[in-house]
Design a protein around this nucleic acid. Structure first.
Length: 495
RNA sequence: GAGGGCGUAGCUCAGUCGGUAGAGCAACGGCCUUUUAAGCCGUGGGCCGAGAGUUCGAGCCUCUCCGCCCUCACCA
């Protein structure tokens, strides 16, 4: 065998040998009767019965003219036992040409070995797809109920670039993405049950808006115009409220041209929701309801472990006014302070700020540095400075503030919502201010959106709006320290 | 964008003071008919991330580049 240099060469040679035996190494279909999980969960019902399974060969322990092996299907791993005198000499030779990683189908009777493991004693098997690349071999041992892993596939770069391998050999990874799917499905059903309408709005937008971020730019050839990949769905969804829908939501991919770290991926999933005739108080209650419901559906309770923290989702979650909570953590009252005073306070508190920052931006910086990391248990921070929120409605009683809240869990923002600004004249003023900020060099400031103003001029009912960062929420609910652990194919530099 | 860490066999990792590249698992050959990190005997496998430099000699020292991770900054 020394003419074969690599493991893939050896497998290619086996492929040739199989073809010589007139075995198609890439079969067309295979009839199965169930899953590994079903059998393992109900051994007594299956014991002595014939089953047919298909999946990936994950381990082989040969013992002369017999072998024990594990087959893994989408539900889990199950052991099977193959014996030369059972499958026949020729087929046993074929079995020896199989490799870990091959996709095979098996037929046999369920029994329990004398060490107590549920096993399929196979009478026949079929190769369904030959694997040409060696999988990482992860071995595990059960010791006092603990699962001990040996040679676990841990290289993060390989795991993210070759997620398919990660999913094959690291069962916990699959678990996270099953949970992610359950979470979004649950949220969707929750909202549909409340009669909100799921809609789709443009990803390619001539004017981007709805958030403060730098966009990706693309080009439409036939029209010869630049378009932006959306940074938010907001302005389109509110046009739909103008159009007469009372409640709409969208699970949307947003794209922001910013740095990448363990909390940021260039494309990410945002749930946005708009409800006519409601305000931000209604929306806070809705968020509590939605999140608590989701946690319950996932865990059966209302507590979750995230890193070193125990998160308790019991409602009601505290509502902290932004200036109150800043005062609580810094002993400084920022309300009604002007920009120069705020600059001095920031310096005093050791919070770095740029020269161009507005008063609102300085307040936000102080909040982010001194308060946000402390907000471990679920809570809402409410009533933000108007400059930070060009799309939010003026506070009904507090001067200079808007009716906005952000939700925090484990020291990170996971949602943002407000009573939506529906006064077209005020909105035009706000946009004009944003345009000024932009001229002064704020790359994240809004552009003027004349069509959006036009829509508001026709009249938009009082509306409450919400955005939830789905990736962030999934991180918390799956105890994942990095956003890359909850995105199947996180962004990577090209190989 | 700045700072720190890492990159050695398919996987997980050693590699001393600069002196011929190592282990376990996987693979290959042999033995073994209820094993389970199966076991025993034997064998092969490397562009040491890439390139340049210092040196008689570089996996190791220096520089440049590439990729990943962490922290910070910007953001959700």
């Amino acid at each position: 065998m020394d003419e074969f240099k690599t493991l893939t060469d050896i497998r290619l040679n086996k492929l040739d040998q199989l073809k010589e035996l007139e075995i198609n190494p890439y079969a067309y279909r295979y009839e199965i009767t169930g899953s590994a999980r079903q059998i393992l969960d109900d051994v007594h019902a299956y014991e002595g019965k014939k089953v047919s399974l298909a999946g990936r060969l994950m381990s082989v322990r040969e013992h002369g003219k017999t072998a024990f092996a594990h087959l893994m299907d989408s539900s889990g791993k199950i052991q099977f036992y193959v014996r030369k005198d059972k499958v026949g000499d020729q087929r046993y030779d074929v079995f020896k040409l199989l490799d870990i990683g091959d996709i095979i189908g098996i037929v046999g009777d369920v029994f329990i070995t004398r060490t107590g493991e549920t096993t399929v004693f196979i009478e026949s098997f079929e190769l369904l797809a030959k694997s040409l690349r060696p999988l990482p071999i992860v071995k595990e041992k059960l010791e006092e109920g603990e699962r001990i892993l040996y040679d676990e596939f841990t290289d993060k770069e390989l795991r993210y670039r070759q997620r398919y391998v990660d999913l094959i050999v690291n069962p916990d990874v699959k678990e996270v993405f099953l949970k992610r799917s359950k979470i979004t499905q649950h949220i969707r059903e929750f909202l549909l049950n409340k009669n909100y309408l799921e809609v789709e709005t443009p990803i390619l937008q001539p004017i981007y808006g709805g958030a403060a971020a730098r966009p990706f730019i693309t080009h439409h050839n036939a029209l010869d115009i630049d378009l932006y990949l959306r940074i938010a769905d907001e302005l389109y969804l509110k046009r739909l409220i103008v159009g007469g829908f009372d409640g709409v939501f969208e699970f949307g991919k947003d794209f922001r041209n910013e740095g990448i770290d363990r909390f940021h991926n260039p494309e990410f999933t945002m749930l946005e929701l708009y409800v006519a005739y409601q305000d931000y108080h209604f929306m806070m209650a809705l968020v509590e309801d939605l999140v608590v419901n989701t946690v319950e559906s996932l865990t059966g309770g209302n507590r979750i472990t995230f890193g070193e923290h125990e998160i308790d989702f019991s409602t009601p979650w505290p509502r902290y006014k932004m200036f109150d909570i800043i005062k609580q953590y810094t002993d400084v009252d920022l309300y009604q302070k002007n920009r120069d005073e705020l600059k001095a306070i920031a310096k005093e508190l050791d919070v770095e700020i740029d020269h161009g920052f507005s008063a609102g931006k300085i307040i936000d910086e102080i909040f982010s540095a001194k308060v946000e990391p402390k907000l471990i248990q679920p809570c809402f921070v409410i009533d933000y400075p108007v400059e930070l929120s060009p799309l939010a409605k003026k506070h009904r009683t507090e001067e200079g503030l808007v009716e906005r809240f952000e939700g925090f869990i484990a020291g990170k923002e996971f949602c943002n919502a407000f009573s939506e600004l529906n006064d077209p004249l005020d909105q035009r003023d706000r946009f004009e201010k944003q345009v000024e900020y932009k001229k002064e060099g704020d790359e994240e400031a809004h552009e003027m959106d004349d069509d959006y103003i036009r829509a508001l001029e026709y009249g938009m009912p009082p509306t409450a709006g919400l955005g939830i960062g789905i990736d962030r929420l999934v991180m918390i609910l799956t105890n994942s320290p990095s956003i890359r652990d909850v995105i199947l194919f996180p962004h990577m530099r090209p190989e």
